[in-house]
Design a protein around this nucleic acid. Structure first.
Length: 424
RNA sequence: GGAGAGGUCGCAUAGCUGGUCUAGUGCGCGCGACUCGAAAUCGCGUAUACCGCAAGGUAUCGAGGGUUCGAAUCCCUCCCUCUCCGCCA
């Protein structure tokens, strides 16, 4: 949600921002609602002031003759107040609904563009892996090695689910340990959050608008939804709190499964585990003061790169253009990793500075220079485990179908190569 | 799931026979006095949002609704916490 003040004071800036994101929003709706709201506010306050005066007069009145007319006026004022209040509540909720449609204001350095073709390549690390044989894709490798079983997952849960088995599981835990050990150096506090959260908490993270609701699994008999990323459960942790400025930046590294319906992606990435309904992810999340969030995002990005460089995987860093940046984000960087079987880079990491877009709804503030201001919130992938496994398997595959374990993971996996097991 | 208790200003508590209660007290915190300095002591101050140039005003005692001229105080619904029982990884 954006600040109504921003809209009222700089409507052209907001208008332009919406335009750059490919959103058409009639701002006159919000501005006229805001106008109506302040008028009603005055009405309500005036009525209430009088009502309080009357109550106080009655409390001090002694005789019945004095009481009677006051009580009558009190009744009348109450009616006036009630009518105005009802209208006010309606206008306020209309205004909020209207404002929820607005995407966050983009940072000035975000390139303008319609879609991903306008994303900017910031840098590239390592050249694409060269093979002197025809590399297999991760599904072939995984099935042969007995670490990925999608056929049985389909029997049990349907399409886009997976059983990860054997050394695949060891690899996953190794990635988690590796990510925790690196983020610990920057004082990230590990968190395992609830996977089910109240619908309202999800709403306050801004995921129920802008088409996001189609992505979310709702529980039929409870007012709960499955998280699509641990960010959705970590952000609301501090709802309504005023954070101690000395405690910032407040950094969490969450581990959770992520559940996504993948509605609207029918037929896309149907092979393998690139796009599944459930995957595990290690996710960084920071709260900062407003002046520090851009620096924090650079830190998140640098940690992501440190993790990838440790794995020695070829990747490139992209800055998303205006049209490709998610609504809550003011700036997003993606890391795309080389996937040999597709001969292209695919998104494995993402980091967003959501500035005060989420914290305004969550009412998470920080006292800075004696004033409470909304904190800034940021998130960044440490590892989307599934996609990282794809990258490792494909880039580290050997001609015999075995996979070399990246050096930084060997201590955690307990061996340096994953070989085929007899198929069961 | 059953029975009971409870949710008040950063923390702890008072208020709950409705009326200067946004709310007392203690602690904590800030400023000041005393002191060479500190402790102790004393004095003052100590929520947030919105309207207003300001003075000031309005709202908020878990959330929402109701009764009333007036509710922290009475009624209803919901949420959460605690204790006991049941069940359970």
């Amino acid at each position: 949600m954006i600040d109504i003040k921003t809209l009222l004071e700089t409507p052209d800036v907001v208008q332009k921002n919406n335009q750059n994101r490919g959103k058409t929003i009639d701002i006159s709706l919000a501005t006229s609602l805001a106008q109506e709201r302040s008028e009603l506010l005055v009405q309500v306050q005036t009525a209430r002031t009088r009502a309080n005066e009357i109550a106080s007069l009655i409390a001090n009145a002694v005789s019945q003759e004095e009481r009677k007319p006051l009580v009558d006026e009190g009744r009348a004022v109450k009616e006036t107040a009630k009518t105005a209040e009802t209208k006010l509540a309606q206008v306020e909720s209309d205004l909020e609904n209207e404002l929820r449609k607005y995407p966050n204001l983009l940072r000035a350095d975000v390139p303008i563009g319609k879609d991903e073709t306008s994303n900017q390549t910031i840098r590239t690390h390592l050249d694409p892996t060269v093979f002197n044989f025809e590399p297999k894709d991760h599904l072939v490798l995984g099935e042969t090695l007995g670490i990925i079983d999608m056929d049985r997952a389909a029997k049990v849960a349907g399409a886009r689910f997976v059983y990860l088995k054997g050394d695949g599981v060891l690899l996953e835990f190794a990635l988690i340990q590796y990510a925790l050990s690196v983020t610990a150096k920057e004082n990230f506090v590990p968190v395992i959050p609830p996977h089910l959260i109240a619908t309202q908490a999800m709403g306050s993270m801004g995921y129920l608008e802008h088409g996001g609701e189609d992505e979310i699994y709702h529980l039929k008999n409870d007012d709960l939804v499955l998280i699509g990323t641990s960010e959705q459960a970590i952000g609301p942790m501090h709802t309504g709190e005023v954070l101690d400025v000395g405690a910032l930046p407040m950094r969490y590294v969450g581990f959770s499964a992520c559940y996504r319906r993948e509605a609207g992606s029918y037929g896309r990435d149907t092979r393998g585990i690139l796009r599944v309904h459930q995957f595990d992810k290690v996710e960084m999340f920071s709260f900062t003061t407003p002046d520090k969030s851009d620096a924090e995002q650079e830190l998140l990005l640098s940690i992501q790169e440190r993790l990838m460089q440790g794995l020695r995987l070829p990747y490139r860093v992209m800055k998303l253009c205006s049209g490709d940046t998610g609504a809550p984000s003011a700036r997003t960087y993606d890391i795309e990793t080389w996937i040999p079987s597709q001969k292209t880079y695919r998104e494995t990491h993402s980091t967003s500075n959501t500035t005060d877009f989420q914290t305004r709804r969550l009412n998470i503030r920080v006292k800075q220079d004696g004033k409470n201001v909304f904190a800034h919130a940021l998130n960044g992938t440490a590892f989307a485990i599934g996609r990282t496994l794809i990258a490792i398997m494909e880039n580290y595959q050997q001609e015999d179908g075995s996979i070399i374990v990246p050096e930084v993971l060997r201590a955690f996996v307990g061996r340096d190569r994953i070989n085929a097991v007899a198929k069961k």
